[in-house]
Structure formats: structure tokens, C-alpha cells
């Protein structure tokens, strides 16, 4: 008798179950990783609508390529790699950086309308604007390293795997990203 599966089941077992025809296994994978993958995409493309599209594409790609997944890396690393590649392709194609700022500001406006304290919300809005500007000013590699390390708490080994680069120098990349962000934040606040 097959072992029952749930969201806590090991990734490899979920994949095996899916390959054997258990569609629920895919549902559990989505539920398990949707928030993490959403965040990584959102930080790269910066607005919710694009993130939503890319996130769905990432999981659809996983659904279609699950049988080809070789398990050389962990499932979430594989998912992150798909997410990063899709997000970068999206940015390169659309070149929507300016539109992204507008979208983010709109999102923030929506949030502020539901919360009390207009001044506090304006301050948050300003902070986000500065951080987004700083992140956008980073070279692509530094930006991705910063996002994966700072926000997603990934190890340098995992970052190297996701970005398909050697881990040597990733720590330095991270440090330089922080220093550049620091400079922009300092300049903007003065």
C-alpha cells in the first residue's frame, strides 16, 4: 500500500508520487513553496501582477518538467532557479523598471488606505522607494545574491547552485551589494 502524502512529506516522495500519477502531490508542492517562490520573484520583478504571472508559470513549468527533474539539487533550489530565470527573462524582455516603481507605489497606497497613521505610511512608502531604487541600481548578479542571501537566507552554496555560478566571491558580492545600498540610502536620506 502506498504511503499517504501531505504537505510535510519529503520532496522526493512527493515527486515520486506525482510521477506515479498522484496529482495531489503537485498540489502539496505548490502549497509548500508558493510563499517562498512568490517572495523571490516579487523582489526581482517588484510588482505583484508580474509576480503572479511568473509564479504561475514557474509552477506550470515544474508540473510539465517534473519527470525530467534529475534530483541533483534540492527541489526548492530547482524551483528557485526556474523562478530566477523566469524573473530575469521577464525583466530583460519587458524593461519595465519604471512601471514597476509606479506599481509598487500603487500597492503601498492601497495598504496605506487600510491603515491608520498617514504620516507613518508616507514614511514607509518613502523607505520602500529608496530601497527599491538601491536594489535596482545594483548589477544583476549582486542584486540576486543580495536578495537570495538577505531575504531568503540561502547559503552561498545554494545561491551558487541557483545562479549556476561558483560560490567563490559570492560573499564579496553580497558585501559590495550592501555597501552600494548603504551609499544610496545615505544619499537619499540627506
Amino acid at each position: 500500500m502506498r504511503e499517504p502524502i501531505n504537505i510535510e512529506t519529503d520532496d522526493n516522495k512527493l515527486i515520486d508520487a506525482f510521477i506515479e500519477g498522484n496529482e495531489n502531490a503537485f498540489n502539496y508542492i505548490v502549497l509548500k513553496y508558493q510563499k517562498k517562490v512568490y517572495r523571490i520573484i516579487r523582489r526581482i520583478v517588484l510588482n505583484h501582477d508580474d509576480t503572479n504571472d511568473i509564479l504561475q508559470e514557474v509552477f506550470i513549468k515544474l508540473y510539465n518538467s517534473m519527470s525530467e527533474y534529475r534530483r541533483e539539487s534540492r527541489l526548492f533550489t530547482y524551483l528557485y532557479r526556474i523562478a530566477v530565470n523566469h524573473s530575469l527573462n521577464h525583466i530583460r524582455k519587458a524593461k519595465k523598471n519604471k512601471a514597476c516603481i509606479v506599481q509598487i507605489n500603487d500597492d503601498i497606497h492601497d495598504l496605506s488606505s487600510t491603515n491608520p497613521g498617514i504620516e507613518e505610511e508616507l514614511e514607509k512608502k518613502e523607505k520602500i522607494k529608496i530601497v527599491e531604487k538601491a536594489l535596482k541600481s545594483l548589477p544583476e548578479k549582486q542584486r540576486l545574491v543580495f536578495i537570495l542571501r538577505f531575504y531568503d537566507n540561502l547559503s552561498y552554496e545554494e545561491i551558487g547552485e541557483i545562479l549556476n555560478i561558483s560560490k567563490g566571491g559570492l560573499k564579496a558580492n553580497y558585501f559590495h551589494a550592501v555597501k552600494k545600498i548603504q551609499k544610496i540610502i545615505t544619499d537619499e536620506r540627506q
Partner: peptide
């Protein structure tokens, strides 16, 4: 710097109920 960046993180949350409809 890192504290400043960290204070903006919550803004990246999607709209309410988003993950209920994603699957």
C-alpha cells in the same frame, strides 16, 4: 543599512487571500 532594508520587507506581501486562489 540592513535594519533600514528590513523595515520595508512586510510590504512585499501579496494581497489578502492571494495564496488561497493560487493553486
Amino acid at each position: 543599512t540592513l535594519g533600514y532594508i528590513n523595515s520595508t520587507e512586510y510590504e512585499l506581501a501579496p494581497p489578502n487571500g492571494y495564496f488561497n486562489n493560487l493553486l
